[in-house]
């Protein structure tokens, strides 16, 4: 078997995302292309808003329940000047942040310990594979019973969902530690703790970052879901209130707000992940699905 046969292909594939852009230096063209892309992207959004405007105006959907952007966007602008809107964002984001921190730290510690001890790894495997696919929203009724509409109810759901994202990635990361590097560390008499610090954690860090990015997105989804269906205060509850009041421009404005929030979270964590990856590219293979 020739491992070298496939390795260069994988490297080359990773470095050339666009099929045809590898043949010559084209920086000037690249810049022009970036401008074209940005222009087309903006045009795409404008077209989308245009279609959205047409659908209720042409009567394809009822304008009362499907308000046009001319009703929604001004409403969003008003919201942006409203203190209660920002308070709701703060409530949502603080539940999100607490849930994410709790899930990440618990998952990192547990996954590192379990990943390092083969006995624990085999003993927990089925339990993990059974618990992980359970949809966290199934726990909503239980949490409502136990905690009522307190934020703890939301936290349980957020932590349960985002815990697995981090846990699984860190487990991959710890398993990815190079065996030669581990033997080297052992032969130089590094103790258990310094092996973990200097070998295991650096190897697992990029995986951790991927896990945290996935967990951040999941945590936001569940933070808002919990507010909607458990009723703890935040953007989600505001959305449900607006809907029961029949205030559909507000419902749509809040949907856009949650989308922007999600976009922001994605962008920030993708940036953080890329940072972590850039100085660890060598220790990591291709994307872990």
């Amino acid at each position: 078997m020739q491992p070298s046969a496939l390795a260069p292909a994988a490297v080359a594939r990773a470095s050339t995302p666009a099929p045809s852009s590898s043949s010559s230096p084209r920086r000037g063209r690249g810049r022009r292309r970036a401008a074209r892309r940005a222009g087309l992207g903006a045009l795409g959004i404008v077209l989308f808003v245009g279609v959205w405007q047409l659908v209720p105006t042409a009567g394809l959907l009822d304008g009362r329940y499907f308000p046009p952007p001319t009703a929604v966007l001004p409403r969003l602008a008003t919201d942006l000047g409203d203190l209660e809107f920002w308070r709701n964002i703060r409530r949502t984001m603080s539940t999100w942040a607490i849930g994410l921190v709790v899930a990440t730290s618990a998952a990192t510690v547990l996954a590192t310990v379990i990943g390092l001890v083969p006995f624990l790894r085999s003993a927990t495997h089925t339990t993990v594979e059974f618990l992980r696919p359970i949809p966290s929203v199934a726990l909503i009724p239980l949490c409502v019973l136990v905690f009522g509409i307190q934020p703890q109810a939301a936290l349980v759901i957020i932590v349960f969902a985002s815990f697995w994202q981090v846990f699984v990635q860190v487990l991959y990361g710890v398993a990815d530690v190079d065996s030669v590097a581990r033997d080297t560390a052992r032969s130089f008499g590094l103790g258990r703790w310094s092996r973990v610090r200097h070998l295991v954690l650096p190897t697992a860090l990029p995986y951790l970052m991927t896990g945290v990015r996935l967990a951040a997105a999941v945590a936001l989804i569940l933070a808002i879901t919990a507010e909607m269906f458990i009723g703890n205060p935040g953007l989600g509850r505001a959305l449900i209130f607006a809907q029961s009041a029949g205030d559909y421009p507000q419902v749509y404005a809040l949907v856009i707000a949650t989308g922007l929030l999600g976009l922001g979270v994605n962008l920030v964590f993708r940036l953080v992940e890329r940072r972590a990856l850039s100085w660890h590219q060598s220790v990591r293979g291709e994307e872990v699905p």
């Binding site: 074209r36 892309r37 087309l40 992207g41 903006a42 045009l43 795409g44 959004i45 077209l47 989308f48 936001l220 989804i221 808002i224 879901t225 909607m228 269906f229 989600g236 959305l239 449900i240 809907q243 419902v251 749509y252 809040l254 949907v255 949650t258 989308g259 922007l260 929030l261 999600g262 976009l263 979270v265 994605n266």
Partner: peptide, 22 residues
């Protein structure tokens, strides 16, 4: 792809459950 990419990024970022009331 260039035309739709930013739009799709945004649509994906909307937490799916908020679509339920709509």
């Amino acid at each position: 792809g260039d035309l739709l990419e930013p739009l799709l990024e945004f649509l994906r970022a909307i937490p799916p459950p908020v679509l339920i009331p709509i």
